[in-house]
Every structure is written in C-alpha cells, then in structure tokens.
Amino acid sequence: MPAARWLRRATAASAPRAPLWLLVMVLVLLGIRFSRGALLADAYALLSRPFWPGTAQSEWLRSARRLEDQARLSQLELENGRLRGLLGLQAASGEGRVSAPVISREPGGWWQRLMLGAGSLQGIATGQAVLAPGGLIGRVSSVTPTTATVTLLTDPVSRVGVWVGRNQRQGLLSGIGTDRPLLRFLEKDPQVRPGDVVLTSPASTLVPPNLPVGVIQAVNDSADPAPEAIVQLAAPVGAVDWVQVLLR
C-alpha cells in the first residue's frame, strides 16, 4: 500500500502548519463577508474592465439625464412664473420670441428708436422687451399691425431696472442720449467696478429678469445722490439688422 503510506507521511509533515492556513482563510472569508464583497467586487471590476459595455449606452444615459433636466427646468419655470405672477412681477423670459427685421433706425437723433418690420399681427405688443445678439436693447413703445417702434435703452426716455450680476446691487439704467446709458445706483455704496456684468433686475415690472444688458465701463463714485456707472451695451445697437421680441 505505497499510496496510503505517502498520505500518512504527508499528513504528519503538514500537521503543525494547518491551523495557521486555516486561520488566514477564515479571516479572509470573514473580511469579504463583512465588507459586503468589496474586495471581490473590486477584483471583478478590475478583471472585467476590458469587457465593459461601450459608450453608446452611457450616451443614452446622458441624453436621458438631459431630458430629465429639461423637464425639471420647465417645471421650475412654471413654478417661477406662478410665484412672479403672485408677486405682480414681469414673467421670466423663455416664452415665445418673434424675430423681426430692423426697417428704420434713428440712433442719433432726439428720439433714439428702431422700427421693426413686424407688429401686432405677429403678436407684438407695447412694453415687450427687444433683444439683439448680445442682450437687451430696448422695449416696444408702439405697434401697428405690421410695424413696431422700439425705444432704445440709450433714449433719454428709457428707464429700466437692472442689477449687477456679481453682487446684486440694484440700479436704474437711464438713457442720456449717447451710445452708453448711465446706471444710477439706488445705494450709496454699490461696490461695483469696471467689467461687472449688468442684467435686468428680477424686481423690475417692465422687463423679464436676468437678461444681459451690458458691462460697466466706468464708475463715478462721487456722483450725487448716489454713484453712477457708464454701461457699454452688450448688443451692437447701431449695426443690428434683426432682433427678437420677447412675447409675454
């Protein structure tokens, strides 16, 4: 019985080491058990990485995420519109827009206006905000069935509530007859500096909130009764050929 002899000899030789191996095995198994298979999962991830699914499905997931975000955004806009309605404020932008060509411009006279080739037949009404590439340029001051007249932000008649995007300081953007309107702050110490972006104010009842208007070019801290700033409009008023009217 040579085989039985060999087995007996081997068992007798490894007998003193058996408890150590057993202990290590038990500890490893216990570690895996109490780490909820973390080691196993990580090892599996490492080994199976070459066989993971391609990017097609991850793109599909990203697209689903975008759809979800859009749905959430429209819900938030609805909610925001409802709350602004309760507060009696102007509705946020995002509703319909009408593109209209500029058929007459009078940027250098006593009255600084544009005439658009679209009017009440296209849904344009008095008071609506007018955007050019870059930001707000004015508001509709009168309409006919096929034309609309826009009072530019540079017209001395124009007054629009704005705020500085960086620190939310409120002010009144006033046309003074030049290419650059004047921002008159409602606080003694607005803490603004050249380069700050000016947006329409959420407190404004005339224009939708947070439309880009321009950039502060110079600040006059010693103006009375409050500091003033010269604003360079973001939209090129003198060169614009097509504008968009935000319908309410």
Binding site: P156, I176, T178, P225
Partner: peptide
C-alpha cells in the same frame, strides 16, 4: 426702498435732463 438708499423718484424721471442736454444734446 432701500436702506441706506436713494430716493428713486428724481432718478425715475424720464426725458432729456439739463445735464444731458448740455452733453449729448449740444452735440446733436
């Protein structure tokens, strides 16, 4: 409306003001 604020009434008056007439108005 704000504290410390500025009376917004005179600021909200639209149209050509004397100082604007002396600047852009004179050029025009």
């Amino acid at each position: 409306v704000l504290d410390p604020g500025v009376h917004p009434g005179p600021l909200a008056l639209s149209g050509w003001h004397g100082i604007d007439l002396l600047g852009a108005g004179l050029h025009l």
